[in-house]
Amino acid sequence: MNDVARPFELRRLRLLHEFAQRGTIAEVAAATSYSPSTVSQQLDILAREAGTALLERDGRRVRLTEAGRTLARHAARMLELDEAAHAELAASRGAPTVVRIAVMPTAAQALVPRALGLLDEREPTLRLESVEMSPEEGLRELATRAFDLVVAEQYPGHAREFREGFDRVLLGPDPVRLAIGPDDPARDIAELADRPWILEPRGTAVRDWAVQQCRAAGFDPDVRFEGTDLTTHIRMAAAGRAVAMLPDMVWTGDRATVRLIDLPGAPVREIFAAVRTSSRDSRAITAVQTALRDALAAHRPR
């Protein structure tokens, strides 16, 4: 009699999926609250169940084997089915539908409060949970199923990588302008070559794009200040201490403390929502997307 293959344990498949997304045992351990030794042990057990090696040495690191990549793809689909089953059962017993989103800081301030108001009217049983997070981190966590939707942005000529298994929905445009002190006489970006600048940290898409705008105007910006909190950028510009390059979405209140200058070509960044392809037909996620899009359309900086 042939041996019957034992079913894979979902918990171990989830660890394999996490490794496929994160790339190291240490990162999987940090994300799942297991110790690294426990993660390694569980993946070793999964390999014995699979009857083949799932990880192999690559110098000082480990990576997935071809069999590991194959099983990781199947693990992603199994996790999708598990997620869908839990969602349907929750709906059948009348439990509130929960949608978890990761939102970049400007959207968290400008869009989420208004979107919540719209959802209260349209989907009163829906529970929206939001975490403020950079687009780079949010998109990675979307793949690990930590979130159902991520609000992110991309700049002209700096499109974000398209990842298999993700769908994007455009929420709308967001103009980007220069912000300078109210008494600064500059009229365009070329006249700001000798000013100190405040930009976001190196390695971010917005930093790379902002530097390119300056180079197109004939200079490299003198970046003396860095920060992820755009409130700091606003205050530095308002004090006349630095030039900032800011999206209109940041202006949720009075912006009379700075003077705004249009960039050449009046560029806009695209605000989009990313979801897993497996959940794009979810009524709840679609409702959240629509509320965020309507919130952006209604945003009128003052």
Score class of each variant (00 low, 15 high):
Ala205Arg: 12
Val206Tyr: 01
Arg207Tyr: 12
Asp208Ser: 15
Val211Glu: 08
Val211Asp: 01
Val211Phe: 06
Gln212Asp: 15
Gln212Lys: 11
Arg215Cys: 03
Ala217Met: 06
Gly218Leu: 04
Phe219Thr: 05
Asp220Ser: 10
Pro221Asn: 00
Asp222Cys: 03
Val223Lys: 00
Val223Leu: 06
Val223Arg: 00
Arg224His: 10
Phe225Gln: 07
Phe225Ala: 06
Glu226Ile: 07
Glu226Ser: 07
Gly227Trp: 07
Gly227Asn: 08
Thr228Met: 14
Thr228Tyr: 13
Asp229Ser: 13
Asp229Cys: 11
Asp229Trp: 04
Asp229Glu: 15
Asp229Arg: 14
Leu230Val: 12
Thr231Arg: 12
Thr231Pro: 04
Thr232Gly: 08
Thr232Leu: 14
His233Trp: 08
Arg235Cys: 01
Met236Leu: 15
Met236His: 07
Ala237Asn: 02
Ala237Ser: 13
Ala238Cys: 07
Ala238Arg: 05
Ala239Gly: 09
Ala239Ile: 05
Arg241Gly: 03
Ala242Gly: 02
Ala244Thr: 00
Ala244Ser: 13
Met245Asp: 00
Leu246Trp: 00
Leu246Asn: 01
Pro247Phe: 05
Pro247Val: 02
Trp251Val: 00
Thr252Ile: 15
Thr252Glu: 09
Gly253Pro: 00
Asp254Ala: 13
Asp254Glu: 15
Asp254Pro: 08
Arg255Phe: 12
Arg255Gln: 09
Arg255Glu: 09
Arg255Ala: 11
Arg255Val: 04
Thr257Ile: 13
Val258Phe: 11
Arg259Glu: 09
Leu260Phe: 04
Ile261Ser: 02
Ile261Glu: 01
Ile261Thr: 03
Ile261Leu: 15
Pro264Glu: 07
Pro264Ala: 07
Pro264Met: 06
Val268Phe: 09
Val268His: 12
Val268Pro: 00
Arg269Pro: 00
Glu270His: 14
Glu270Thr: 14
Phe272His: 06
Ala273Tyr: 03
Ala273Phe: 04
Ala274His: 02
Ala274Trp: 00
Ala274Glu: 08
Ala274Pro: 03
Val275Asp: 02
Val275His: 10
Val275Phe: 12
Val275Cys: 14
Val275Ala: 11
Val275Arg: 12
Arg276Met: 06
Thr277Phe: 11
Thr277Leu: 15
Thr277Lys: 14
Ser278Tyr: 12
Ser279Asn: 10
Arg280Trp: 10
Asp281Trp: 09
Asp281Ile: 01
Ala284Tyr: 02
Ala284Ile: 04
Ala284Gln: 02
Ala284Met: 05
Ile285Gln: 02
Thr290Gln: 15
Thr290Arg: 15
Thr290His: 10
Ala291Gly: 09
Leu292Asn: 04
Leu292Pro: 02
Arg293Ala: 15
Arg293Asp: 04
Arg293Leu: 02
Arg293Gly: 11
Asp294Tyr: 03
Ala295Gly: 08
Ala295Cys: 10
Ala295Asn: 10
